[in-house]
Design a protein around this nucleic acid. Sequence first.
DNA 1: TTGAAAGCGCTAACAA
DNA 2: TTGTTAGCGCTTTCAA
Lengths: 344, 344
Amino acid sequence: MKTNKKTTIQDVANYCKVAKSTVSLVINGNARVSKATRDRIFNAIELLDYKPNLNARSLKNNRNRTLGVISEDLANQYESSIIKGIADRAKFHNYELIICECEWSQEKVANYIEVLLQRKCEGIIITTPLDIGPVLEEKLQMLKNNNIPYVTILNGNVKTDYNAFVSDDEQGLSLALDHLYQLGHTRMALIAGYRDARATIVKEKIFIQYMKGLGTFDPNLIHYTDFQPEGGAMATRKCLAMPMAPTAFIAAGDMIAIGILHAVKSQGLKVPEQISIIGFGGIDLLRYTDPPLSSVNVPRRIIGEMAVENLFKQIRKTEEKIATYTVVPTSLLLRGSTAMIGTI
Amino acid sequence: MKTNKKTTIQDVANYCKVAKSTVSLVINGNARVSKATRDRIFNAIELLDYKPNLNARSLKNNRNRTLGVISEDLANQYESSIIKGIADRAKFHNYELIICECEWSQEKVANYIEVLLQRKCEGIIITTPLDIGPVLEEKLQMLKNNNIPYVTILNGNVKTDYNAFVSDDEQGLSLALDHLYQLGHTRMALIAGYRDARATIVKEKIFIQYMKGLGTFDPNLIHYTDFQPEGGAMATRKCLAMPMAPTAFIAAGDMIAIGILHAVKSQGLKVPEQISIIGFGGIDLLRYTDPPLSSVNVPRRIIGEMAVENLFKQIRKTEEKIATYTVVPTSLLLRGSTAMIGTI
DNA sequence: TTGAAAGCGCTAACAA
DNA sequence: TTGTTAGCGCTTTCAA
C-alpha cells in the first residue's frame, strides 16, 4: 500500500516546464544553466521533496559511492576497531559501507567478493586473520586482473602479490619475546589461535625460531585455540600442569590473553610476580583486567583508515596501477602483566 | 583502464541466440522455458561468467535485498552485539547490510535515514541510546506515513508510536535496585551517561522514584558521564569522597561499571565486600574483570534478530500495517560484584 | 541556455 | 516456448 510514489526527476522537470536533462545539469552543479531556471529548479526540488534515486544514477555512472567491507566478526574488538577506522574515512568521503561478516570461511569471503561486485561497490576491503588459500587467492587474482580497487588487511609480513596492509606480527612477536627474555624468561608458552589462521602461522614461525635460538624450544609449549578466552584458559591449565611449567605466556590474540590471565589467577598464581603474560592486538579492554594486560599493539584503527585512503587512490586513478604492500609496525603496550622472573 | 567490460544479459542472449528476456526468465527461475534452451543459457552464463547487475535489477524492481542499519558506534560492545544479531538474520535471508554510524547525533540519524532511502534499502533499523527529539521524530513520522519498513531499537519502555523494540530498562533498573536493597544497601549511587540520552533518562526516573520510596534519595548520588570508563571512574571518586559515601553503585552502562570498579579498587576498597557494583547491558567482557561484574542483562543479540524478522514482516506484507511495540525484559546477570552490605 | 534522444542492464507485459 | 517492446530514473551527448 505504498502511497506516495517518490517524485522523480521528470516530476521536477514537468513542474518547472523544462527538460529533465536540465534538471540533471542543475543537480550536478553544472554551470551552464541560467540563474533564473536554476533557482526555479532548486525551488521545485525543495517543494516536491525530490531526492535522486541513487540506484538509477549508479546504473548510469557505474559508480555508487559505496565501499564493500568483508570482516571476520563484527562483534570482535580487534576487527571492530579496524571497521571503525574504515567507517570514519568512508564518512569523510561521503561513501556508504556494505559490511559483510565472513566467519572464518574463505568460501564466504570469496562469495561476498562476488556479491559486492554485483552490487557495484567501488572498492572492497577484506580484513581477515585467515591465511589466503586457493579459493580466496583466485578471487584476489581476479580483482587484480580486472583492476578492481581492493585492499586486504592481513596479519604478518609475508610478501604477497596482493594489495595489502599487514601488521608486522613478526616484529610484534619479537618485541614481546625480547621483552620477556630481558626480564629473565626463557621458558615461554605460545597460546595461538586456529592452527591454519595466518594470525597463528606467522607467530608460530617466529616463536619457534626464537626459542630454538634460545635453545629452550619445547613443542609442548605451543597450543592452538579458537582465539577465545575459554580456549586460552584451557591451554594455560595444560601448560601449568607440566613438570616444567612456563614462566611466561604469549597469546596470539588479546581474548586468549584474557583467558590465560584467568587460568593463571585461578591456580593461585600471581601475575606478574610469578607468571608474565603478553597479549596481541592491543584492544582497549585490556586496560580493565586485573592486572591490566600488556600487549603487542597493532594500530588497528589507523590501518582501517589507511586502507580506505588507499582504496580511494585506486578508485581515482584507474589509469595507473597502484600496487600496495604496506607493512605496519607494531609496538609494545606495557601495562602490568609482565615482570622480572621470580620477582616473588 | 578497466579492461573487460562486464558481460551483460545481452551478451548471454547474443551468445545463445535468444532474446534477453528469455535469459531473464531463466535467471529468475521461471519454469516456462524449454529444458534445452535453459541448459544452453546456463551454460553460457557459466562460460561467459555472467553476473547480473544488481543495480539495474533494483532500478527495475525497486527492491535490492539491502537493509539499512544506523548505529551509535560500531566499536561499542553493546551495539555490536545488536549488529551481530542483525547481521545473522540478514545473512539468513540473503540480504546485505548498509551500516552507518551516527555518533550521538540526531541530525546524523535523520540524515542517514534519507541516504538509506535514496539507496532504496528495503528497510531501516535504527539503534540508538539517544532520546528521540524533534528532528528524528519528524523522519520517523515520515517513514511511518509512507509505509516504509523500519524498526527502532530503544532503551526503556516509554510508549512511543513508532515501531520499536525496547529493552525494559525500567524493569532492569528495578531488578538491580531490589537486589541491592535485599543485600542491605540503602545508599546507592547512579552513574548515568549523557544527560539527554534515553538510556540515561529512563534509569534516572526509576532510580529517583525508588530512592524516594526508600526515603534515602540524595541528588548528589546521581552523576552524568560520557558512558565511558574514565567518566565512570571520575564520578565514583566524587561519590566516595562524600561524607556519606554510597555503599553501592549502579551504572547506566557496562563501560561505566568498569570505570567504577577501577576507581573503587584504586581507593583501596574491596568489591564486593565493601562496595557493590552493578552494570547495565551485560556485555561479555564483564566476565573478565576482577571480580567479574554483575550486570543487568539486555538480550542484545536477540533484539537485533527480532528487529530484522520484524522488518521482513513489514517488507513482505505491505498491505496491512504491522505496527510493533515490543518490550524486551531484562534479567540480572549476577557475577561477583555485589554482596551483603558490610560483609567485611 | 535549453531540449531531444539514446542508453545504462534489467524485468515484465504482451504478442507471436 | 520464445521474442518484442516498453520502461525503471538517471546522465550525457548532440542539436537547436
